[in-house]
Design a protein around this nucleic acid. Structure first.
Lengths: 212, 212
DNA sequence: AAACAAATTAACTGTTTGGTTAATACAAAA
DNA sequence: TTTTGTATTAACCAAACAGTTAATTTGTTT
C-alpha cells in the first residue's frame, strides 16, 4: 500500500517548478516550523531563485498555509478512511492501529508539525473545514455504541475510547526523542518498539473493553 | 573593603528583575516558541528595558535554554515523584493518572512547548541530564515486572505499558484544539472531558492488564 | 557628601529577513 | 522572424531583529 501522504498530489514534483517549491517548502516547514523556516532556505532546497516563491505563492504565510492545509486535510482523510473500514468493531480496532501506526511512521514529521503549529496558532484550525472528518468519527462512535448495547464491549464513552486509541498511536511518534532518551532506545530499538506497538496497542485496547 | 560579603549591592532588586524577566520570557516562549518569540515582547511583558534581558541572560538562546532546562527538569521531576509513590501497582496507576493529569492541566502549555521545541531541535535534549529520571522509571518498570510474575497483571512489556499510560494522559492535552474541533467541545465540555479522564484512563489501563 | 559600583535606559548598529523590481531568458504564436 | 506573454534571475529595499553602547540613575560604602 502507498502510505506516503505526498505521493498522490505532487508526484511530478521534479518537473514542475511550483511543485518543486511546494515540496521544498514542505520539507523545511516540517522540520523548522513556520517561524523557524527561511524563504531563502526553501529556495535553495528547491534549487531556484527566491523570487519564484513569491511569484507562485505570494507570501510566506500563504505558502505555509497551503502546505499546512493540505497536510492537515490529507492526514485526517487517511484517518477517516481507516476509521470507516467495514469491519466488526474489535477487528476494526486491530486494522486501524496497525495501519494508522504505519501511516504515521511513514510520515513521521506530520503529527509533531501539526501539533506544534496549532499550539502556536490555534486559530489556524478554524480556517480548515473537513468534509468527511466529522462523518467518519460519527460512524465510529456509533459502532462503539452498538457494540456496547450488544454486550460486545463494556460501557465506555465513545469519545474517550477514540481519544485513547489515537493517543496510543500518535504519542510515541511525537515524543520519539524523549522516549529514546528515557528508555535508552537507539534508532533500531525505537523502530522495533513501534513495530511491536502495532499489535500491542490493539491488544491493550481490546483487553480493556472486550466482554468475554 | 570586604568585597566578598557586599559584592552584590543590589541583591534584592537583582533577583526581582531577573525573576520578572524569567517569568515574562517563560510566558512568551511557551506560547510563541523560541523562533516566534521576540526579545522586545519579553521586555514589554516584564515591563523593563530590552537591554536588561542581555544584561542578565546574555543572549536569546541562553535565556531560552535556561527556561527550557528548568521546565524540562521540573516536569520530569514531578513525573518521577508520582511514579515513585509507595503503592501497589494498580493503586499507583490510579494515583499517577489522577495526579499527572491534574499536573499537566495546571501547566497546560508545558507538554506542547517541550514537544514542539524538541521537534525543532532534538539535540537540545542531550544537553540536559536527569538525575532521578532514569532511576524512577526503572523502579516503575520493576514494579510492573513483579506484578506480572505475581500474576496480578498479564504479561506486557513494561516500556509499552509506561508509554501507554503517559500517552493517554498527555495526548488529549497536547491535541486540545484538534479535539475541541473534531469532537465539538467548548471550553467547558473539554474541561469536563479531561476531568472524566482522571478516572477513565486508570480504569481503561487496569481493565486491560489486571488478572481477576 | 563624596566616591563608587551596580542597575537601568534611550539610542544606536549591523545583520537578517520577507518581499519587490527591473531587466532578461524562453517558448509559442503570428 | 518578429511578437508576445510567461518564467526566471540578480540586485535591491525597507522593516524587523538580536545585540551593543554610552550615558544616567540608584543605592551603598566610606
Amino acid at each position: 500500500m502507498d502510505n506516503n501522504i505526498h505521493s498522490k498530489t505532487h508526484e511530478k514534483a521534479d518537473k514542475d517548478t511550483e511543485n518543486r517549491i511546494f515540496e521544498a517548502a514542505r520539507k523545511v516547514f516540517h522540520t523548522k516550523g513556520l517561524d523557524g523556516a527561511r524563504m531563502q532556505e526553501i529556495a535553495d532546497e528547491a534549487g531556484i531563485n527566491k523570487a519564484m516563491l513569491h511569484y507562485y505563492f505570494r507570501s510566506k504565510d500563504k505558502l505555509f498555509g497551503s502546505i499546512f492545509e493540505e497536510d492537515f486535510k490529507e492526514f485526517f482523510k487517511r484517518l477517516a478512511e481507516l476509521i470507516s473500514a467495514d469491519l466488526p468493531l474489535l477487528e476494526k480496532i486491530e486494522f486501524f492501529v496497525e495501519n494508522y501506526l504505519e501511516l504515521i511512521l511513514q510520515n513521521s514529521y506530520i503529527p509533531a508539525f501539526i501539533l506544534s503549529e496549532i499550539h502556536h496558532n490555534p486559530e489556524r484550525i478554524k480556517n480548515i473545514f473537513l468534509e468527511k472528518g466529522i462523518k467518519a468519527e460519527q460512524i465510529f462512535m456509533d459502532d462503539i455504541k452498538t457494540a456496547i448495547s450488544l454486550g460486545i464491549i463494556r460501557p465506555i464513552d465513545p469519545k474517550q475510547l477514540i481519544v485513547n486509541i489515537i493517543g496510543l498511536c500518535i504519542f510515541p511518534i511525537v515524543a520519539k526523542p524523549i522516549l529514546c532518551t528515557m528508555l535508552s532506545f537507539d534508532e533500531k530499538g525505537y523502530r522495533n518498539f513501534i513495530e511491536e506497538r502495532k499489535k500491542e496497542v490493539a491488544r491493550f485496547v481490546i483487553n480493556s473493553i472486550k466482554i468475554n
